[in-house]
Amino acid sequence: MALSAVLRPGHVGLRVLDLDAALKHYRDSLGLIETARDAQGRIYLKGWDELDWFSVVLREADAPGMDYMAFKVLNATHLARYEAALKAFGCKVECIPAGELAHCGERVRFDSPTGHVFELYCEKEVYGNGMGRQNPNPWVEGLKGMQAQRFDHCLIYGDDLDGTVKLFREVLEFDLTERVMEGDLMVGAFLCCSNKAHDLALIRHPEKAKLHHVSFLLGSWEEVLRAADLISMHDISLDIGPTRHGITRGRTIYFFDPSGNRNEVFSGDYTWYPDHEPITWTTDQLGRAIFFHDRQLNEKFLSVVT
């Protein structure tokens, strides 16, 4: 349930080196549903239980990574209010006309102190989850692969973490749910516009505009283990897991798409309310904060980004 006028992560634009290989990965292994293609050759996909037309847009490029991450806003009044507030904050704001992404209304695009590009929008056509809104079944048949339910969050790396955290808390009314502290310095921030442990996470890192992972929700720990089987069955590049995070409590597995963008599928966190005190992790306990079972820092997990 959204607790602010920013409802949820709505879509992510990803660059891939080979569109066909990426489509096979996101459609056949993650189990997303292909819902559109456009004149530029971009491919649109969504998780089976998402109602809006798409949540992932793939674009072929010569370097992988994240083009933009977008959040859906409740209505046009709030969208206009956020647009003004973003300008007042000093963001470079650009309006992208309706239809530039197929089936999507106008998008308000803005930059951030960590160099990442974000968007807000309030209209996207409904594709549906295949069950209708009247007397529906609980799930649909014939899904592929890991059967990811929805695009859930991104973890991004950048230099001016404080600046981007300030932007999301003060302008977009996100809550800080968890943070990682090195003394007085915030080195990790978990932000939420809803009732989840995170909708966006940030880690401090010397380079701007890096993507650590794009995450998709599964229904249970059993489904995370089944995803692990599929990672070997489909010869997908495994990063780490299945395991448990201390931070956010997620049960998780990490792997890479064929262009090296990291994906996560996970299940379960907790219910956040804005009256809760944020959880603080200290870097002297960072091993168990990140991987609660291993309790060891993993160099590859921490430093490999696109």
Partner: peptide, 11 residues
Amino acid sequence: PVGCRGGGCGI
């Protein structure tokens, strides 16, 4: 050194 194995991370 082994990273993403997909030509993306440069490791």
